[in-house]
């Protein structure tokens, strides 16, 4: 159908997938970090536990971006 166009469409789909998939996890990781810093500032003795749970929750938020990355890779290399 589109002799050259099909490749361009795949590339654009890959790029848009990762761009829109990364926006909100980026916000959420920033928010998690800022809230954790706030909590440490208020209660410096609890910094160990706060950092542990912060990394855990940041990994969960990051996983959303990873879903987008997997979909982007699937579009790029499989479809």
């Amino acid at each position: 159908m589109w002799p050259e166009g099909i490749d361009a469409v795949t590339q654009a789909a890959t790029a848009f997938t990762i761009v829109f998939g990364v926006i909100f996890p980026a916000f959420s990781i920033g928010w998690i970090g800022s809230k954790a810093m706030e909590a440490i500032g208020r209660n410096p003795e609890a910094s160990g536990g706060i950092l542990t749970s912060m990394i855990l929750i940041a990994a969960l938020a990051e996983a959303i971006a990873i879903y987008a990355l997997v979909v982007a890779l699937a579009i790029k290399f499989v479809a």
């Binding site: 969960l60 996983a63 990355l69 997997v70």
Partner: peptide, 16 residues
């Protein structure tokens, strides 16, 4: 699903 995709995605993305 999210359980398996999270782990797979992270490790596969790291390999890539």
């Amino acid at each position: 699903l999210p359980f398996s995709f999270r782990l797979f995605g992270n490790i596969f993305a790291g390999e890539v």
